[in-house]
Design a protein around this nucleic acid. Structure first.
Lengths: 154, 154
DNA sequence: AGCCTGACTAAGTTCTACACAAGTCAGCTA
DNA sequence: TAGCTGACTTGTGTAGAACTTAGTCAGGCT
């Protein structure tokens, strides 16, 4: 489908950023919590129940995601309420959105005959939003028009 | 970061395409095998060793990915050799590329101070390729300019 | 003073993902 | 015919990712 990487065995799999990213968000629960965070959920109980995971798992995962810097925990208080905690995406966390959307888009296309429950629209113009491969000259790039290369060593 | 989903608790998490996609490719080994498939690796031993996973896991994962229709197994024979098997991406599998690239891009940016080992370039024009959120009117969309909505029921 | 709610923690268990080591089997090559 | 290589399978063990059920603890509310 895509071109082969020239020096086939030459490069180490352990330096790969995909593997590194999976170390951080490699679990189902991490993805699901991030999904909820994108959808605007901030409170512990809501995150756990809407992501459909148990509270102990949510607690562990949230701690890890905060440690990794994808979420931050902050105290807040509504008038007449006591102080509570809320989780929100950091820039690092928010930057994962394209990966989430790509997964959603794939699921919408290949796994859900109705096209999926959630739609993304551009606030500016109202058009549908999707994830695309784009080159710096703004061409949409298809899977077949990709070259892979090793970046120069540091 | 992004807008909240209007009917907050109204929609079922189990209908979500992200969760559905994770059922199919939710493991580290599945992602890593797909990565290798994109890089052009086709043979069993190469897939296992380059993905850095054990052969038993590779066998299981490959069987699942073939069953799910992301890869197809075909026999081939080189002259003077016996028949061997080779795995290649189907359209369904190839369509996951944006998700892989998004993950790679995130890892390159946030986890690897050198910017990551692999680079993607557009065959046509040679420019660097990345994953972007794009609306149907071809605007690049930032995380803040997204609206979420429920799609009309089927 | 006692209750309630939100945000967790603790204990015990099950399931899955993965590793390593070894064995199998087919079929070409020597 | 024996050996080798590629593509697996089997067997065994560990760690982690998940569940349920049950608790804790703080602090406002009645």
């Amino acid at each position: 489908m895509t071109g082969a990487l020239d020096p086939r065995d030459a490069w180490a799999a352990d330096r790969c950023s995909i593997a590194a990213a999976l170390e951080v968000v490699g679990t189902r629960s991490a993805f699901l919590i991030l999904r909820e965070a994108f959808f605007g959920t901030t409170r512990f109980d809501d995150l756990a129940s809407r992501a459909g995971i148990s509270e102990p798992v949510a607690a562990t995962r949230l701690r890890e995601l905060v440690d990794e810097g994808l979420l931050e925990r902050e105290d807040y208080r509504e008038p007449g309420q006591r102080t509570r905690q809320r989780y929100r995406l950091t820039e690092k966390g928010a930057d994962l959105l394209p990966a989430l959307v790509a997964l959603m888009q794939w699921g919408d296309r290949w796994l859900d005959e109705t096209g999926g429950p959630v739609e993304l629209r551009h606030t500016g113009c109202g058009e549908r939003v999707s994830v695309q491969l784009l080159c710096d000259a703004d061409h949409r790039v298809s899977t077949d028009d990709l070259d892979l290369a090793l970046r120069a060593e540091a």
